[in-house]
Design a protein around this nucleic acid. Sequence first.
DNA 1: CGTCGTAACTACCGGGATGTGATCCCGTAC
DNA 2: GTACGGGATCACATCCCGGTAGTTACGACG
Lengths: 154, 154
Amino acid sequence: MSSPVTSFRGPQVCKVIGITYRQLDYWARTNLVRPSVQDAAGSGTQREYSYTDLVELKVIKSLLDAGVSLQAARKAIEYLREHLGEELGSANLVLQCADSLLTYSGDQIVDLLRRGQGVLNIVALGPVVEELDATLVALAPAAAGAEPPLAAAQ
Amino acid sequence: MSSPVTSFRGPQVCKVIGITYRQLDYWARTNLVRPSVQDAAGSGTQREYSYTDLVELKVIKSLLDAGVSLQAARKAIEYLREHLGEELGSANLVLQCADSLLTYSGDQIVDLLRRGQGVLNIVALGPVVEELDATLVALAPAAAGAEPPLAAAQ
DNA sequence: CGTCGTAACTACCGGGATGTGATCCCGTAC
DNA sequence: GTACGGGATCACATCCCGGTAGTTACGACG
C-alpha cells in the first residue's frame, strides 16, 4: 500500500492556502518560505512543500488577511520556525513590536496587554492548523491523497 | 491668564506623534485623519489638529509600528471615531478581520480568541493615551503650553 | 525527435506609501 | 512695499508587493 503523500506542489499549495501563484513565487524568491522538500531549479522543475511549509504559509496568509504587513509576517515566521516543535494546537503566536512569542493561556496574553505598551497581534494557531487540515482533507483528491501529519499523529 | 492651547499645528503634531510631515500630509489628503479644528486651504494656511485627532494619530502610529497595514488602520480608526466618547483609558481596541470592537477586560479578549478563527490585533488604549499625554507634557514648551484634556479631565 | 502539459521564470506595470527637494502662499515684522 | 519664516503643496523618485502576460525548460508521451 502506497504511503500517503506528504509533499505538495506549488499550484496545490496555492489552492490549499488560498494565495496566488505569484505570491507563492515571490515568497519563495524572497526567502520568506522556500519549499523544504524540493526547491525549484529553473523552468521545468517543481517546488515541493512539506506540511510544515504549509503551516507557515497558512500563518502568513492569516496575518495578511488580518491586515498585518508582509514585513511583520516575515519576522513572526522566523520566530515560529524556531518553535515549531512545540505544541502548536493550543498555542497563540503573539507579535509585540519587533518581537514574537508563543503563549499557551489567556492569562499570559492579558498579562502582556497590561504590561505592554500598545499593540499585540495574536494568531491562535489551533484554529489556523485546524483550518489547514480541514482544507487538506476536503481537497484530498486534488492533492493526491495528501494526509495531514498533525491530524494523523493525533 | 491665558487659556491652555488645545489645538496643534502640523509640525507639532509630527513631533508629538513621531511621524514625518509627509505622512501627516498623506493621511490628511487621503481622509484618514483630517484636522478637525482647522483644515488647510492651500499654501500659506495651516492645519490645526485637536487632542482627539492626536489620539487617533497616535493609535494609527502604534498600529503601524506593530506591523499593521495602513489599510487595516483606516478601518480601525473609523470604528474608534464612533466610540471615542467611551472610557478609553481602560479599553482595548480589538481588530478582528474587517471588524473592530472595544473590550474592557482580559476575559473578553480571551473569549474572542477561543471563538475566533485566527488573528486579533489588539491596541491597549490606556498606554497609548498615557504615552501621548506624557509626550505632550514633555514637549509643552514646544507645543505652546498645550494641556492634555484627558489628563485635565481626570 | 517533436509535441504537449505543467510549472518556473522573467519583465513590465500599477497601486500604496513615503522620502526628498523645490515651489507656492499666508501672516507677520520692519 | 519688501523680506522672512513657517507650513502647505507639488513633482519626482524609490521601495514593496503582487497582477498580468509572455517566455523558458523539464518530463511524459507517441
